[in-house]
């Protein structure tokens, strides 16, 4: 069964001059216990997806979907109060900045207790027991001491661990991590990421990992969804995305990741797309990537559909099939650096 199944989710921002599309007809399936990576530039709508799943969209946003199921129940058919209660029992979210996602005015113990009692654990001793277990589960050692501290007395990494512990207090089936490591030091980043991946196995929880850092996803995820300007551009297994990216945007993202161990020759540059991500009030005609795409053709002014590619996944590009066939005829041992040349060649 699908843990998350979304059909045609659209999110609009209501403004005086009519609605602006933030996410446009997004469809997504995610199975139990999967780790799904969502990657995209800031403003691409990836955090908005997280907010939509958690039911946290502000009143300025309008959400529509044909089907939106979380763990088997269609959220769109529930009344708002029931929906919030249901979501809170099934899904949890951790935010980018642990300093701001914990309430500065209350101790860790208070914040854990609130959540535990909201989920039916009322006995004081049971709550304390469970709090210590949770802190233990996220790798905090002096649990008793930490419980009585305020968030500002802990480091950023510790705060993020606490935030994860609080998220786990609801016993969620789905954990959404919205840029969980962006504001942390590099060494701490790895620890937190390991923790999340481990929890996926030990606590049997599906994870949506949202980030703009492709390198982070490559090792930890089962599937990857690539967002651009409110559209899902490519959605496929991690292995496929890494070895055979079919969308020009995915390719450009991969090519813009610096490679450790490969010495770049002096004067050579990492690949970067021209221009900027379109603003939501003026999306380009046709393919959203059009104005920046290195391999755009005339037909790109017509909006491409999300098409299924056998043995790969789904891609939103007119040339995906073509590209896939070309790739198959070429040798499979093709390295990434030569592929880069073909992309750059198409540009000039």
């Amino acid at each position: 069964m699908n843990l998350l199944h979304i059909e045609n989710l659209s999110i609009d921002l209501k403004t005086h001059s009519g609605p602006l599309s933030i996410i446009d007809r997004l469809s997504l399936r995610m199975s139990d216990n999967e780790i799904l990576g969502i990657v995209g530039e800031s403003g691409s709508g990836k955090s908005m997806l997280a907010m939509a799943i958690m039911g946290l969209l502000s009143s300025k946003m309008e959400m529509k979907a044909d089907y939106f199921s979380l763990d088997g129940q269609d959220l769109m058919k529930m009344v708002p109060a029931d929906r919030q209660a249901y979501i809170s029992s099934k899904a949890s979210i951790i935010f980018q900045d642990p300093k701001s996602s914990l309430n500065p005015c209350f101790t860790i113990a208070t914040q854990l207790n609130e959540t535990l009692s909201a989920h039916g654990l009322h006995a004081r001793s049971a709550r304390k027991q469970r709090s210590m277990e949770l802190l233990d589960a996220v790798g905090i050692n002096q649990t008793k001491k930490v419980l009585n501290l305020y968030p500002h007395q802990l480091s950023g990494g510790m705060n993020q661990r606490v935030a994860i512990a609080i998220a786990l207090a609801c016993k969620p089936r789905l954990l959404i991590a919205d840029e969980p490591t962006t504001s942390l030091d590099v060494t701490i980043q790895a620890q937190i990421l390991d923790l999340i991946v481990n929890l996926n196995k030990t606590e049997n929880v599906g994870v949506v990992l949202i980030t703009h850092d492709f390198a982070l996803l490559s090792e930890n995820t089962d599937k990857i969804g690539v967002f651009y300007s409110g559209h899902m551009m490519e959605h496929a297994a991690t292995k496929n995305i890494l070895t055979n990216p079919l969308h020009p945007y995915t390719r450009s993202l991969l090519n813009s990741v610096p490679q450790l161990g490969k010495r770049h020759t002096r004067g050579s540059r990492l690949f970067a797309l021209k221009g900027q991500i379109p603003t939501i009030d003026k999306p380009p005609v046709g393919c959203r990537l059009g104005p920046r795409c290195p391999s755009a053709e005339k037909q790109c002014v017509k909006p491409p559909r999300l098409i299924s590619i056998p043995n790969h996944g789904k891609v939103r590009c007119h040339f995906a099939k073509q590209e896939n066939e070309r790739k198959e005829t070429e040798s499979n041992v093709e390295t990434r650096s030569t592929r880069k040349q073909t992309i750059l060649g198409a540009d000039s």
Binding site: Q84, F95, I166
Partner: peptide
Amino acid sequence: DYIRSAKSRGISASKILWKYALR
């Protein structure tokens, strides 16, 4: 964020307003 995450964890709206936000 801490109010949004409290909301997502199923803490009641009145408690969020009177205990969390006002404090």
